[in-house]
């Protein structure tokens, strides 16, 4: 049988992949994909710990994370469309207006 640690290590690796994506992506749509990867990794950890302790709270939290992710995508894509209409590009270097 596989223990909970296998799932947690997998979750940590996937989270790191998403983290690398967030750091290296400059395109806003790709940045969204990387955040989805991170959210999915966290969901795996919640489900694994929940099943390890025989507790349903982990699954509950994963449900609420899925709900939050769905609404985040809805609002975020609306904003992306507005940004694309305004600047004609989704590149962060192009649309950055604060020169800090």
């Amino acid at each position: 049988m596989i223990g909970v640690n296998h799932y947690l290590v997998l979750s940590g690796l996937l989270f790191s992949i998403g983290f690398i994506g967030v750091l290296r992506r400059k395109n806003l749509l790709m940045l969204f994909f990387a955040t989805e990867v991170m959210l999915n990794a966290v969901n795996i950890a919640f489900a694994a710990i929940g099943s390890y302790y025989g507790d349903l709270s982990g699954q509950m939290f994963a449900f609420f994370i899925i709900a939050v992710a769905a609404s985040e995508v809805a609002v975020g894509l609306g904003l992306l469309i507005l940004l694309y209409k305004k600047y004609g590009s989704l590149d962060l270097d192009v649309i950055s207006s604060m020169k800090g």
Binding site: G12, L13, I20
Partner: peptide, 26 residues
Amino acid sequence: KEKQQNPQLVFLLGGLMALVFVIMFS
């Protein structure tokens, strides 16, 4: 097209984070 300013640093940070996670969780 994405302009990468410092790709090595990104992979270093990501790799370190992965290492920390794996040690923590295992």
